[in-house]
């Protein structure tokens, strides 16, 4: 279990994250959504242990993150940032292998991580020859290999906008794959996404953020209410529901309203 209780991050007078609580279970996909500047990426940085909170409590698998070394932390969680760094002169396999540098793990386990992320065909390609989306997948495989080689029973995969470089078909497919992996490998996945409809379709839980605070947290059906979203995003929405009521989508309409 990932448990964040009353997390707050202050920079001067301003609270970037304000009294935010969240729990994420292994085997589930928790998606963080909210307007630009709501603090989604900052929250992910707190959850990853990179940025220490000003106050509040963060536990991964019952262990206080403040007491964990970088190495111990790396066994419990792996992170793919919004624009993960890369360097020309490495091939994709070499990047994926970095996930297991400190963990050991089986010699060829990284191949399985690449296969699971469906990028094993890219293994020998130089990073500078890959598209943004391909490189994103290789980074996902790198983080997945980090978790697969860790040997811990509870592991968390933290992803900052993993669909940003993808077209809408690929984005949908990626989130479906990530959710399936969360279930089969018992990973707790916490990811930031921008697209409400993707969140609605794939999330087990959604955290809706507004100005650093958690505006709502729970299963998609409860969270994705038209009125709430209109107020949050300051825009009029049309809600489309399929005949069998299995699919719902929100479409933003022109003439933005002022936010209240």
């Amino acid at each position: 279990m990932l448990e964040a209780r009353r997390l707050t991050l202050r920079r001067g007078e301003r609270a970037l994250i304000d009294d935010l609580s969240l729990t994420a279970a292994c085997g589930e996909l928790t998606l963080i959504v909210g307007p630009n500047g709501a603090g989604k990426s900052t929250l992910l940085s707190l959850l990853s242990g990179l940025t220490p909170p000003t106050s509040g409590d963060l536990r991964l698998a019952g262990r206080d993150v403040r007491t964990l070394s970088a190495r111990d932390l790396a066994r419990l969680r792996a992170v793919v940032e919004q624009e993960p760094g890369w360097q020309p002169g490495f091939n994709a396999a070499e990047l994926v292998m970095m996930g297991g540098y400190l963990q050991g793990g089986s010699r060829n386990g990284w191949r399985e991580a690449m296969r699971l992320m469906q990028c094993d065909a890219l293994a020998k390609r130089q990073l500078e020859t890959l598209s943004g989306g391909e490189r994103q997948r290789v980074h996902l495989a790198r983080a997945l290999w980090q978790l697969m080689s860790s040997g811990e029973s509870q592991r968390f995969w933290l992803l900052d906008e993993p669909t940003a470089a993808l077209d809408f078909g690929l984005a949908d497919a990626l989130l479906a794959e990530v959710r399936a992996l969360a279930q089969t490998l018992r990973l707790g996945v916490v990811a930031v996404v921008h697209d409400l409809n993707l969140a609605w379709r794939h999330a087990d839980q959604i955290l809706l953020m507004e100005s650093g605070r958690g505006a709502a947290f729970g299963p998609p059906g409860e969270i994705m209410q038209k009125d709430r979203l209109e107020a949050l995003y300051g825009v009029r929405l049309a809600e489309l529901i399929s005949h069998d009521e299995q699919l719902r989508a929100f479409v933003p309409l022109a003439e933005p309203r002022t936010r209240d």
């Binding site: 970088a70 190495r71 932390l73 790396a74 992170v79 993960p84 760094g85 360097q87 490495f90």
Partner: peptide, 21 residues
């Protein structure tokens, strides 16, 4: 070499990989 490789991805990624940057 492991640390030097990780650092080439940036300090944050190296930290995420478990290195005391």
């Amino acid at each position: 070499w492991r640390l030097l490789n990780a650092l080439q991805l940036g300090a944050a990624t190296a930290f995420h990989l478990g290195f005391d940057v």
